[in-house]
Design a binder for these strands. Structure first.
Lengths: 160, 160
DNA sequence: TATTGTTATACTCTATAACTATA
DNA sequence: TATAGTTATAGAGTATAACAATA
């Protein structure tokens, strides 16, 4: 037994990965009560923010392959949270929209997200939380992360 | 278009999940050059810190099922980084040890981890980095995370 | 010919369950 | 009877490739 640091990592990078996985996992548990997975949540948000988008454009923004969007949308359509509407201008497109039930789920999701945030940051004061958010935001900006897009969606087999 | 926050999350929790996934992904890219995956790295570290451990005890600490440890160790043994030695006291056990090559890889891993950390926190000053690490550490403690263990290893189908 | 969405398929990761050998 | 490790199997998630309809 050396005094400490036996196994190695305790710098910011490892803590970030560790806490990030923990946060994602806790969030997944919470939204599971709504019958949703984290990818479902991301997709609902994306559709809500820009209704009528095509699957292709979503696939591009998310960095995933179009066939994956098919599966995700199939899933949400089966739950009647999302609908594919025919596009007037290009009949190849499906315009994606939230249903009324979808809007409601989105609202419940927002309160879940707030509770999640509070629970996760329970160790910190309000000041410290915004201090943390600001430090994290600067890292995110410098690392070129796309706002609101979780990298977990990305296709890692085509990393460039 | 509302003024901002169209898609929703930009609090500390989402940033944490986003940056955590990003950090994990970048780290995975780096260790891939050593022919290793992140779980491999965690296992190597764990064996290095307590040589001679059994697979069962590692499975318990990592929160995974023993058969998964079999696969991970198989992989590292095939690369001749780890060896299973028979235990003198209980012939059911395999005592896990690093080979010389394993020790060397571990050293290279440490310098990779340092470079990773520097790169990830490039946006912050030295002071800010330790400020960040301290905030993160307090959250990790309060959330009950086990030091040095990435939650990604855990068996999520048995969450309690 | 190029593009959108779909289907069919395969691959990777990981857990479950049954099994062997020790204890 | 219980435990350490193993094998065989199955499931979830996701990519690839071939395809139909439309542009």
């Amino acid at each position: 037994m050396t005094s400490r640091r036996q196994a190695g990592p305790s710098g910011a990078a490892f803590l970030l990965a560790q806490l990030g996985a923990h946060a994602a996992e806790r969030f997944a548990q919470r939204v599971k009560e709504l019958g949703l997975t984290p990818p479902d949540v991301g997709l609902l948000r994306m559709i809500a923010s820009q209704p009528g988008r095509s699957q292709r454009s979503i696939a591009t923004d998310l960095g995933v392959v179009p066939s994956r969007v098919v599966a995700l949308v199939d899933n949400l359509e089966r739950k009647e949270l999302v609908e594919r509407r025919p596009s007037a201008t290009d009949r190849r497109h499906h315009a994606l929209h939230l249903t009324t039930a979808g809007e409601q789920v989105l609202m419940r999701m927002r309160s879940i997200a707030t509770a999640h945030e509070d629970d996760l940051c329970a160790a910190l004061s309000t000041d410290e939380r915004s201090q943390l958010a600001s430090l994290l935001q600067r890292i995110a900006d410098q690392q070129g992360l796309v706002p609101h897009v979780h990298p977990g969606y990305r296709n890692l087999s085509t990393p460039r």
